[in-house]
Design a protein around this nucleic acid. Structure first.
Lengths: 109, 109
DNA sequence: TCGGTGTGCAACTCTGTGGTTGCACATCGA
DNA sequence: TCGATGTGCAACCACAGAGTTGCACACCGA
């Protein structure tokens, strides 16, 4: 399984978000298609797609000589839920700490 | 406002997750406290805390000569919601594309 | 068959960043 | 007051990664 940190670091790049947005807009885009419209070379796009694919955010299947990509929404959603779970966990702990602190200073001021 | 990509790149590092986890566990940790228990120097911790603070994931307030940190859960939760929203948006678009494709190939095979 | 088009691989540059060490300064406590 | 302790700043190193160019190969169509 691809680790969550791999997904996060894959998402920490504006070019890759632009790529995923364009892929989601018209499914089946190729590296060459994506290259014109973005201010970087095709090879840069290919590298970005590789990162996204390793993170499980995008899958590419080839048809003839072309490599068509499509987004994998579940991976993005799963990572979002993972982060939200961490937030809830920490929030609970902080609430507990706060409660202890307040019970400890009862009538203190 | 701190941009979402800044938050994501801040989160794309295992050491920083360890830091946030420890800070959330016992609120009010300092850089020196956090340094022993992790296999990096205090200065590395300080840099990481700087990244986390710029991303709005952590806030530091000084008491005397110490700098105590606490996690800012809302930022993590907000970014998680932002990602989930993107996932829903793209999922909707993909569903629409699929619907068009299927209506177009009615009786095609 | 043969030219055009899309992929893929490799080498190279350059910047960002995680990590280090060293040192100066501020603050707390005995 | 003076040593001990915690911060902060700066210089430096090493590596990852975003970007480029060049070239070889595969495939489609006329």
């Amino acid at each position: 399984m691809t680790t969550e940190l791999e997904v996060l670091s894959a998402l920490a790049d504006p070019t890759r978000w632009a790529l995923m947005d364009r892929i989601a807009a018209g499914d089946g885009a190729t590296a060459t298609t994506l290259a014109d419209g973005l201010p970087v070379s095709r090879q840069a796009i290919v590298k970005h797609l590789g990162v996204l694919e390793r993170a499980g955010l995008v899958t590419g299947r080839r048809t003839g000589r072309e490599m068509r990509y499509s987004v994998h929404v579940e991976q993005l959603d799963a990572t979002a839920r993972w982060m939200a779970a961490a937030a809830r966990r920490w929030d609970g702990r902080l609430a507990a700490i706060k409660a202890i602190a307040e019970s400890g200073e009862e009538g203190a001021h």
